[in-house]
């Protein structure tokens, strides 16, 4: 059942993105930025946590979960350290993804030549 939920959630998010791309003059960069801000916004009232419980991996893979992870780490750290924790914990949960992207693309850009 969770596979069905994952399919539906991720598909609906991508469908919204495609509709924005097709019917407005916004580019792919605008769409991903809008989705990150939306993911952070939905976490004010912990709405996105319910999506993660409901859809599992389907809610973890769209870029909205990047905003969700940012605010989640910040809040988690703010509980322990007070205000300064918001700054300390911002990248706690997303550090793995950002580091992996930097390291892989740096190493692979030496191995491969650009194709065009």
């Amino acid at each position: 059942m969770i596979y069905f939920n994952a399919f539906i959630f991720c598909a609906v998010v991508c469908l919204i993105g495609q509709i924005i791309l097709d019917h407005t003059s916004l580019t792919a960069g605008h769409v991903t930025t809008i989705f990150v801000v939306t993911g952070a916004f939905l976490d004010i009232f912990s709405i996105y946590d319910k999506f993660v419980l409901y859809a599992g991996g389907g809610a973890c893979v769209p870029i909205t979960s990047f905003g969700h992870s940012l605010i989640h780490g910040a809040i988690e750290s703010a509980k322990n350290n007070g205000f300064i924790g918001l700054l300390m914990g911002m990248f706690d949960l997303t550090a793995s993804g950002i580091t992996a992207a930097i390291v892989f693309s740096f190493i692979l850009s030496f191995i491969f030549k650009p194709k065009d």
Partner: peptide, 23 residues
Amino acid sequence: YLKNEVIAFIVGGLMGIIAQALI
């Protein structure tokens, strides 16, 4: 537009299934 949106819907859903399967 409709074809683009159907393809985006299906591919996005498959990405969700792959993610859940990997987890």
